[in-house]
Design a protein around this nucleic acid. Structure first.
Lengths: 200, 200
DNA sequence: GGGGAAATTCAACGCCAGATGAAATAGTCT
DNA sequence: AGACTATTTCATCTGGCGTTGAATTTCCCC
């Protein structure tokens, strides 16, 4: 049995119960094997979670690099960046909640893995925003690191919370809210970030 | 022993390990009592978590109501709303990660409690934003539910993620990042939400 | 078919968990 | 002091847990 089958099972169980709420026996049951096999492939549960993170991010980053590249208008590339997140993470709210839970209080090795990914992600976003500032499309005083944070984190919050909580507080069906929310956020972000007309 | 002592212990343990990763025996150890006492005060672990949520939100809502009231300028009241969140939640990142984890995949009773709180919170924020639209300060086409979401969730993301991950990706110390981030977000939000000059 | 390596299962250990009924202790009122 | 209620602990039950060494099975190559 390949490690990836175990990781598939782990992702399902982790997403539902969290890392600490998931037992290796539960993961083995989900994978259809003996718990001891997990120890053959991974040192311990946390190493398994780490491998999951790396698998997920390894799939995401190339698409991000494609999204920010090329001659298309800046706003469109920013929007495409968000859509890459949606494609990779949209159906993984439970897992994403887990990742940020680990970001807040996880073990140092996990934080280190997340940080390495964050720096690469940051680099892509910041370069894009700095390119916009240099070209005059974005305002000169835009705090690029913070703006990058706003761009991505607000959008990911929608992806996470609309499906789970949207029915309780959104005045429209969740799929419509996600679609309108995406466009609204891109427009809103653009208004917040773009240079005033008179300075172009 | 009052229930509130048990809830204090529960908050500490839940914040570190999550609801499922926290055992009643661990909470009892943190409180310095026998696990059976927890059953005397609460039906089960989830009921305990629910009581924690209600305790937290009961403390937060009155301050929010004060923050949005009064004759002060709209932008200042929006900013004060965010500061209320900071005062109540700033040192509770672990617990907040837990809350949103539960928002994403928690049991229905917990989601119902969260939803009830969200609706009250929404009501306050939306009224404030709608007041701004009516007065002409905010743009007429502002999607108020989505804008309210952006306002609060982006700020809470900073509160959660800057302390834990900021050293890995922010080009400044975390306390400074939080301070500048707060002001940057308020300004950014204002640019995204306010009406164009020519339509005032 | 045989040898060797890789993969998988089995059995076991000690410990922890949720939950409960009964017993003991503490507090309050008369 | 006694009655009663509230609080707290104790002991127990059943089931699950992480982890490991040994045994078994499977796979691959000659």
């Amino acid at each position: 049995m390949e490690a990836s089958v175990l990781l598939d099972a782990a992702q399902t169980v982790f997403a539902q119960h969290g890392v600490e709420g998931s037992s290796l026996r539960a993961i083995a049951r989900a994978a259809g094997c003996d718990p001891a096999l997990i120890y053959y492939h991974f040192e311990h549960k946390e190493a398994m979670f780490q491998a999951l993170l790396e698998r997920k991010f390894s799939a995401l980053l190339p698409d991000l690099e494609s999204a920010v590249a090329g001659p298309r208008p800046l706003k469109e590339r920013l929007a495409e960046t968000l859509r890459v997140f949606a494609r990779h993470l949209k159906d993984d709210a439970g897992f994403r909640a887990l990742i940020r839970g680990q970001a807040v209080q996880g073990a140092e090795p996990i934080k280190t893995t997340l940080a390495a990914f964050l720096r690469r992600l940051q680099g892509l976003i910041w370069n894009l925003l700095e390119e916009g500032v240099a070209s005059g499309e974005l305002r000169r005083d835009l705090p690029v690191p913070l703006a990058g944070f706003f761009l991505v984190r607000t959008y990911l919050e929608m992806l996470d919370l609309f499906p789970a909580m949207g029915p309780h507080f959104l005045p429209m069906p969740v799929p419509e809210a996600l679609e309108r929310g995406e466009q609204a956020w891109i427009d809103f972000f653009w208004r917040g970030a773009s240079a005033p007309e008179e300075s172009r």
